[in-house]
Design a protein around this nucleic acid. Structure first.
Length: 145
DNA sequence: GCCAACGTTGGC
DNA sequence: GCCAACGTTGGC
């Protein structure tokens, strides 16, 4: 069971926008990076991830669920790029900032820290639990399954 | 707003 | 197939 992290600039697509989309979810389109695409191809329906605000906020703000596995990106004309659909599951009570993450030794290995430019990335179960706890929510209530 | 890090492109 | 040039991302 995989866990993931999706980055978005809040002025382009924010957590609030995601919440307003509701249970039907939303295409995570516009990704034009092979590593990110490959991670999306590996995602399974029902798996969970974090929603991260880059640039403004710089914090993990919520938990999302994969509601549709990788399919062609409707905003792409080349046929090369794919995306998944995600929906909002629950907000973190306290957003976990990049500073918080960097300050926590358990999170030193996060891709977010090691490769800050990758917009879709994997998160380990341990990291998922740690960030939920820092965010004031119970990881068992928002984990997959 | 700057710039370092990284990925992609294209000339050779 | 190498690598310089370029564009983009995202933290600061």
């Amino acid at each position: 069971m995989g866990y993931w992290l999706f980055k978005s600039e809040p002025h382009k697509w924010s957590w609030d926008d995601q919440v307003k989309k509701g249970a039907g979810g939303q295409e995570w389109d516009g990704v034009r990076n092979y590593q990110a695409r490959n991670f999306m191809r590996a995602m399974k329906k029902g798996e969970r991830g974090f929603f991260y605000h880059s640039n403004e906020g710089k914090a993990v703000v919520g938990v999302v669920e994969i509601v549709a596995e990788a399919h062609p990106d409707s905003t792409d004309g080349t046929g090369k790029w794919e995306c998944v659909d995600i929906k909002a599951v629950a907000p973190l009570k306290n957003p976990v900032t990049l500073d918080d993450i960097k300050a926590d030794g358990r999170l030193d290995e996060m891709v977010l820290v090691k490769n800050s430019r990758l917009s879709v990335q994997p998160v380990s179960w341990n990291e998922f639990q740690t960030i939920c706890a820092l965010g004031g929510i119970d990881p068992n209530e928002v984990k997959a399954g």
